[in-house]
Amino acid sequence: MIALSGVRARTLSIDSLAIPPGLTAVVGLNGTGKTTLLEACTGLLLPDEGTILVDGLPPREVDAGWVSASPDRSLLFSRVDDELASPGRFAGLSPIETAARATGAAERAGAVRHLSRSVRTLSGGERGVVALAAALASQPTVLALDEFDGFLDRETLDDLIPAARDSGARFVLWSTHDRELTRAADHAIALGGGGVAGTGAAALALFDAWERAA
């Protein structure tokens, strides 16, 4: 369980929230704090107040993977195979173990055909797929996917939903504006009004309100 209590971070206030293991869709209008919640649960951001515990540990003591909403900002290396090997190399694993993790992650994310490519030649959507593979190669406990589905076509997204769920990460937090993804997720959290606006079916129902507002 990821347990939040009395959390204040940027514009977001959450008195109490428990996120169970599995794939959780995080939804909400622009500027309601989706990225802030993901950053706080992965330890990228320390809340101004309150506590967050991931299975009893502070987020900074738990391995986390991050895929940015902006595909250009997720990748560090100029070659895809170096990008996917980097988590193993940084962790000091043997070359064999590093390669096995990179290949396994590429297979799960559908990035095998990109392995020998230069990052510069990847499209926005392909960078997202490679960034997901790189995040999986680090075998995180918490995997945060920050709206990266905005650059994916429907077929690719439909392939990646099960890939994210079966990634081995105990918690997958995926912020999105996609109703089908939210419906397919194990859990849903909607943000709004400075905090949590609803969870589960109540979060899914907000899509109707947003479409009416449109």
Binding site: G28, N30, A69, G150, H177, A214
Partner: peptide
Amino acid sequence: FASLDLPARA
């Protein structure tokens, strides 16, 4: 449309 919420997309 990527990164925009549903009302903003409309």
